[in-house]
């Protein structure tokens, strides 16, 4: 489904922030992406949501080599990826409803469908009564739920979340992870970038661990016997 082969990334003429990264994400898998600050997590995430092009190596997403895709096709590809940013990145001039509706507008869905889907999802994340409020009038937790709703509204095949529990207390963090697991059970491939060891210990999923731009994969013991969803290649 998603395959990174010998991928490297550098900014300008600086050193490589990602070196020879190889992995494959199978459909419906769930992974944590972990590593110390500056290890390249954000850079790897940006490659996954096609926000950057690798300086070397090949990335294949949903059966397509991204190098061979036109700008138009890349935009279609990005619509298949949902992203939850640590700082939410909501558009503050748009209401909660319009923020969540944005991915559907980008894919030219009808107003009728947008109205019904967005209303239903906002009810599901318990923000139905706040749908016409601007993000800045809502709490951090409510903003985060809007960001998650926006990321999942178009039923992405891959959902990326960057430190989603970073600003939350443990209880809400666990609840949020429960929500991600629920989405994963519905078929969405998940990659969660996190520092939170407690979360990684509590939820048994494979870990992509970045250290100085090098990627290793760790599989928790209780899922060792499952079919591997992440395969190390050329490591």
């Amino acid at each position: 489904m998603i395959k990174f082969s010998h991928v490297g990334l550098r900014y300008g003429i600086g050193p490589e922030v990602l070196s020879d990264v190889n992995f494959t994400l199978e459909p419906g898998s769930f992974h944590f992406l972990s590593g110390p600050s500056g290890s390249g997590k954000t850079s790897l995430m940006s490659l996954l949501y096609l926000g950057r092009k690798p300086t070397r190596g090949e990335i294949s997403m949903f059966g397509h080599d991204i190098k061979s895709l036109s700008r138009e096709q890349l935009a279609f590809m990005r619509q298949k990826v949902g992203v939850v940013f640590q700082d939410f990145r909501l558009l503050n001039n748009l209401t909660a409803f319009e923020n969540v509706a944005l991915p559907l507008r980008l894919s030219n869905k009808s107003e009728k469908q947008i109205r019904s889907d967005v209303t239903e999802l906002l009810e599901w994340v318990e923000l139905g009564e706040y749908m016409h409020r601007l993000p800045l009038t809502l709490s951090g937790g409510q903003q985060q739920r809007i960001a998650i709703a926006r990321a999942v509204i178009s039923k992405p095949r891959l959902l990326l979340a960057d430190e989603p529990t970073g600003n939350l207390d443990d209880n809400i963090g666990y609840k949020l992870m429960g929500l991600f697991e629920q989405l994963n059970r519905m078929g969405t491939t998940m990659v969660i970038a996190t520092h939170n060891q407690q979360i990684m210990d509590k939820f048994y999923h494979k870990k992509l661990i970045l250290q100085d731009g090098l990627l290793t994969v760790e599989t928790p013991r209780n899922i060792m016997h499952d079919a591997p969803s992440v395969q190390e290649e050329a490591m």
Partner: peptide, 13 residues
């Protein structure tokens, strides 16, 4: 920032 965001979300040119 806003342009980068909608670009990441799959906005066509």
């Amino acid at each position: 920032k806003e342009l980068a965001l909608i670009h990441i979300m799959g906005a066509h040119d």
